[in-house]
């Protein structure tokens, strides 16, 4: 497989009133062509910010301070603004969390869909609209030609998310970043959207990064999972390894807190005690140490590096950032 995306030691911080908020603290990963990566973590763990940093879609207060993002070997972090714009319009598609507010209420669906490709590909608008109609059909919107002429408020939430997906796919991107695309939708629509994306991925052979806080959603969908905590990647492995042999205490905690049918009725759902770290003044040691049941002395003082697990093989081995090998410790939380 060929590599599409390579991220090395990415740091992003926000300027706030009296200093900096360190949202992303050295994220490194790679993505193959056609691969689907799930990024998991709780709110504020830096998962969205790190993925937005890939295409520099950040608010003015945010700043990438270190690291590089290579898309098809091209460095995005140091590219010019116009180059980044054209990369956004041609190679990367974004799907956002809240479809209800992601469409301009003053523009027709069709106009909005084709805005990017008309600008970047310099094709005629009528031609672009024909293509848009084709993509709307592909994402399961009936009567697509008619819909192009409607305004966003005439569509339901699920329909709007389909439109957003069509919008992201229209420029035939090699990478799609989906930032919690199903969070704002109800469960049945959520399942439809997941099925849709799975189908489209096979059809169009693109790489997808799916950001979510719902670990269970990723089962049966993604190839690899990356778990983030406090702006760090704490564990990264293929789907099965994460589910069956998690090695970071945080991943273990996340998996335990998924409700299952086997859970005894009336029993409390396990949760991870404590609160996420303050990114304003990050702890000197492992960010998860204060909440960790496995912690040792070293965890307080040194940040563990993300490194291949001993015994794991392959070109892209299971990686974990923990001083403790949980396999050697039988400690139950």
């Amino acid at each position: 497989m060929t590599k599409l995306l390579e991220v090395n030691n990415l740091h992003t911080r926000f300027k706030v009133r009296n200093g900096y908020l360190h949202a992303v603290n050295g994220v490194s990963f790679s993505l193959d062509k056609g691969e689907m990566l799930g990024v998991v973590g709780e709110s504020g763990c830096g998962k969205s910010v790190s993925m937005m940093s890939l295409i520099r879609l950040l608010p003015p207060a945010a700043q990438i301070t270190e690291g590089e993002v290579l898309l098809d070997g091209e460095d995005i972090t140091h590219a010019s603004v116009s180059r980044v714009n054209s990369i956004r319009g041609s190679k990367v598609g974004m799907i956002f969390q809240d479809p209800m507010t992601s469409l301009n209420p003053f523009m027709k669906i069709g106009d909005q869909l084709v805005e990017g490709i008309v600008y970047h590909r310099k094709i005629a608008k009528a031609e672009a609209l024909k293509q848009a109609a084709r993509y709307l059909k592909m994402v399961g919107i009936s009567n697509a030609e008619h819909r192009l002429n409607e305004y966003p408020h005439q569509l339901s939430g699920g329909m709007r998310q389909r439109v957003m997906i069509a919008m992201a796919l229209l420029n035939e991107p090699s990478l799609v970043i989906a930032d919690e695309p199903t969070t704002a939708l109800d469960v049945t629509i959520q399942a439809q959207i997941v099925e849709l994306v799975k189908g489209l991925r096979e059809k169009l052979n693109m790489s997808i990064i799916w950001i979510t806080h719902d670990l269970s959603l990723l089962a049966g969908m993604v190839d690899r999972i990356m778990v983030m905590y406090g702006g760090y990647v704490v564990e990264e492995a293929v789907l099965d390894d994460i589910y069956k042999a998690p090695l970071h205490p945080y991943t273990i905690g996340l998996l335990k807190s998924i409700p299952s049918l086997k859970t005894e009725a009336g029993s409390r759902l396990p949760s991870i005690p404590g609160a996420p770290p303050n990114l304003f003044s990050p702890p000197t040691g492992c960010p998860f140490a204060p909440r960790c049941a496995y912690k040792i002395g070293r965890c307080q003082d040194e940040v563990p590096m993300l490194a291949a697990v001993s015994g794991a093989g392959g070109e892209r081995p299971h990686r974990v950032a923990c001083w403790v090998d949980v396999r050697e410790r039988g400690v139950e939380q």
């Binding site: 714009n85 956004r88 990367v92 598609g93 974004m94 507010t101 805005e115 990017g116």
Partner: peptide, 13 residues
């Protein structure tokens, strides 16, 4: 607003 972000994501100047 998200639609401004979405337009930025499409590379609209």
């Amino acid at each position: 607003k998200n639609y401004v972000l979405a337009a930025e994501a499409l590379g609209v100047p």
